[in-house]
Simulated scan of single mutants.
Amino acid sequence: MTPSRPRSPAPGRSRDRRGRGPRGPLAWPPVPAMRSRREVFDDIVIDVAERARTYLGSRYAGVEFAVEDVPLSDPAPWEEPAAPLGRLLPVGGSVGHRVVVYRRPVEARVRDADDLGAVVREVVAEQVAALLGVPPSEIEL
């Protein structure tokens, strides 16, 4: 009897290295520690946006909240030369307005995760206050 050569594994199947059995999954099931910074930031903005809906009422029910990585590279002449943390943009159609929070500038200004939530609440409160025409101190998120 001649020794048989090991067969190559079928496509999509893991190899049995050194006779120890098939290999396990390449990644474990998702756990909170495996979430990206972008996902954590998006969740914070969604939570703050839901709180802001109580202030917007039915008149501004169509306001959208969005997250972008960085603002446009060409700021308007009246804007500060520093990167803005958020903007209130008028949008045509049935929506009316969009509150945009810029992830990278916000993350650059915070020290830890606790500060991140506070800064996002402050940015959204400023934009909602501008939309409603009230001082930001009246908006508690």
Rank of each mutant, 00 (worst) to 15 (best):
A76M: 12
P11I: 09
V120S: 01
R111D: 15
R17Q: 11
V110Q: 03
V128S: 06
R18I: 09
L141Y: 07
L72Y: 09
G96W: 06
R121P: 06
I139Q: 03
V67R: 02
R59C: 09
V120H: 03
S73W: 00
P135W: 06
H97P: 08
S94V: 15
R111E: 12
Y102M: 02
G117K: 08
A66T: 06
R53G: 06
P135H: 07
R23H: 13
S4T: 14
V124F: 05
R87F: 07
L56E: 07
S8Q: 12
L132R: 05
V123N: 04
V45K: 03
V101L: 05
I139Y: 04
D112C: 04
T54Y: 14
R98M: 09
L116Y: 08
S137A: 15
R53L: 06
A27N: 11
R7L: 15
P136E: 07
S8V: 13
L56M: 09
T54A: 15
A113F: 08
R23S: 14
L88T: 04
R15L: 13
E64D: 14
R5Y: 12
P22G: 13
L116H: 10
V63Y: 03
A113E: 12
P71W: 00
D16M: 11
P105W: 01
R98T: 03
R15F: 14
P77L: 05
V106A: 01
P22D: 07
P30E: 04
